[in-house]
Each structure stands twice: as structure tokens, then as C-alpha cells.
């Protein structure tokens, strides 16, 4: 049985707090613990948990209601991932309902996690949630909504493979110079800054983490290489610490060699592109805790 399936069971009620797990020791951990946040409509939780497990972490799925009941649960973990899906049906705009819930109730725990060296990853709907929460870009550590993910220019949901380049050296999830072939699948992924100054600051501060590249590997990437019309081909952004990453594409959908669409022609790659992101993150946690 996969750990993810085990994890999807409701967490047993504990009468005594587990002090040891709650406060990770300063020594390096072999298997960092990652909380996979579930909510109504989350649907990429199993494979995202599996990717973290493949990379060496222990992934535990926790429902947001459970977290709301005991917000300190997050202190038992080294990482938090908000997986893809349609949390609350994308009602009121993708990520709005869950983002509002986190912003008004749970954001302190998330901040605490990042402040002690932990990581937060938001993939697709998870990125939408991070943006609506105001955790990214998080200029000066503020919780402030200064970018959004608007409806695709094509006005519809699209599933296609894209090529990403890493454009920051700040992110613990990414290595400068790497490129990833991974799929996108969304209807609201067009990154849009509040104004010109936000846009300029994203670039200047190295918070633009990932960009879609065109057929020749450059910019601007035309449709469909930039699948949604995102400003400056931006596919993902990081917070100033480099420990929070939000991205529209799905790295967990390229964690096995046979998932690559060119697998049947070119054979298996040495290391699936998407898996690298999880490996980098787990490596960071191993060195931090």
C-alpha cells in the first residue's frame, strides 16, 4: 500500500502532544515530514505525496478542517504542499475560498514553518491558493495580494506539455540552468501583477522563479508555449526567502520516466524532470533540519 493511501485516512486523535515530533531537532533529518493539505476538491494529493516520498520525504495528508481544528499540527512538519485540484470548485475564482480560509485562520502557522527553515509548495490550484492567500510574492515578508492568476486568454481549460526554464537562484526547489518538461492543466493561470512596480520588483528581486520558453527556447514564448498569456511568460514565483514556491505546471506529473510524451521515441530519461523539483526540496530540508 502506498504511503499516500495510508495518509488519506483521518489522523488519529492524540491525547498527548508528541513533543519530539513537534519540535524538529536541529540535527539533520533523514526523512523530512511534509504535510499534504487536502480540502474539498483537492485532486492531486496522492501523486504529489508520492513524488515527495520518491524524493525521500514522509508525506502525510491532512484535511484543512483537521488543520483548522488544531492549527499547531503544522508544527509537526518540515514542509507543506498545497496540491492541485479544484478546491471548493473554483467558486468565486480559483483558490479564493481556500485562500481566504488560510489567510484569515491559518497563515500564522505557515509563516512559522517558513521562518524556521521549512518549505511551502503550491502547485496549480495550490499556487492559486498561495496567491489568493497573499503568501507569494510576499515582498518584505508581508501577507499581501499583489499578483493574481487570471483566466487564460483562451478562456478555457487546457492540458498541454510546456518547457520551463529556471530564472532565479533563490529557490530551494530549483537549480539555475535547469529546464523542465512538464504539463500544465488549468483554466486560470495567467500571472498578472498588480502594476508595473510589482512586475519590476518581481524581476529585480529574483522572485520570478520559472518561465515558459518558446519553440526556440527563448522569449517571448508565443501561444501555446506560453499556454495562458502569463505576463513575461511567468510560470512560477518564489517568496523572498526562496522557501515558498508557487507554480502553475505540474512537476508531479513527470515523476516516472514513462510519463514523458517523448518516451516512446527517445526512451527513458535518466531522471524525470518533475522529480528533480521534489529532490531539490527534500535535499534542502535534510540540510536544514
Amino acid at each position: 500500500m502506498s504511503p499516500a493511501r495510508k495518509a488519506s485516512r483521518p489522523a488519529p486523535r492524540r491525547t498527548r502532544p508528541r513533543a519530539a515530533a513537534r519540535r524538529p531537532r536541529a540535527a539533520k533529518v533523514a526523512a523530512p515530514r511534509v504535510l499534504v493539505l487536502r480540502a474539498a476538491g483537492t485532486n492531486c494529493d496522492r501523486e504529489t505525496a508520492f513524488a515527495f516520498e520518491q524524493a525521500g520525504a514522509v508525506a502525510v495528508a491532512v484535511h484543512v478542517n483537521e488543520l483548522a481544528r488544531r492549527p499547531s499540527t503544522v508544527d509537526d512538519f518540515h514542509g507543506l504542499v498545497i496540491p492541485g485540484g479544484f478546491s471548493h470548485g473554483d467558486d468565486l475564482g480559483a483558490g479564493t475560498v481556500l485562500g481566504t480560509r488560510i489567510r484569515t485562520r491559518l497563515v500564522d502557522g505557515v509563516r512559522r514553518l517558513v521562518d524556521r527553515g521549512g518549505i511551502v509548495l503550491g502547485i496549480c490550484n495550490g499556487f492559486q491558493v498561495l496567491v489568493k492567500t497573499g503568501l507569494v510574492p510576499g515582498f518584505d515578508g508581508a501577507i499581501d495580494r499583489t499578483v493574481t492568476l487570471a483566466q487564460n486568454l483562451s478562456a478555457r481549460y487546457e492540458d498541454r506539455w510546456v518547457t520551463l526554464e529556471v530564472t532565479t537562484d533563490r529557490s530551494v526547489f530549483l537549480r539555475p540552468g535547469e529546464r523542465y518538461r512538464v504539463p500544465v492543466a488549468h483554466a486560470e493561470g495567467r500571472l498578472l501583477p498588480l502594476d508595473e512596480s510589482v512586475r519590476a520588483r518581481l524581476h529585480a528581486d529574483g522572485q520570478v522563479a520559472l518561465r515558459y520558453v518558446g519553440p526556440d527556447g527563448g522569449h517571448p514564448a508565443p501561444y501555446p508555449w506560453n499556454p495562458n498569456g502569463a505576463v513575461d511568460d511567468i510560470a512560477g514565483i518564489t517568496d523572498p526567502t526562496g522557501r515558498i514556491l508557487g507554480l502553475m505546471p505540474h512537476p508531479e506529473r513527470h515523476q516516472f520516466p514513462w510519463q514523458s510524451p517523448t518516451f516512446h521515441r527517445d526512451g527513458p530519461a535518466e531522471l524525470p524532470d518533475g522529480l528533480r523539483v521534489f529532490l531539490h526540496a527534500v535535499e534542502h530540508l535534510r540540510h536544514t533540519f
Binding site: C44, Y157, E158, R160, A185, Q259, P261, F263, H264
Partner: peptide
């Protein structure tokens, strides 16, 4: 049609509705 469907979720896709470059 198929571009609007998520055919990758659950990370199980091996042969998709489309094939090749």
C-alpha cells in the same frame, strides 16, 4: 475536445489521446 480534458491527473498517463511530437 481532448485539450480541455485533464488527461494527466493522477499521474498515470502513459499513452494519451495524442501521440508524438
Amino acid at each position: 475536445v481532448f485539450r480541455q480534458y485533464d488527461h494527466e491527473v493522477q499521474a498515470g498517463a502513459v499513452v494519451r489521446p495524442w501521440a508524438g511530437v
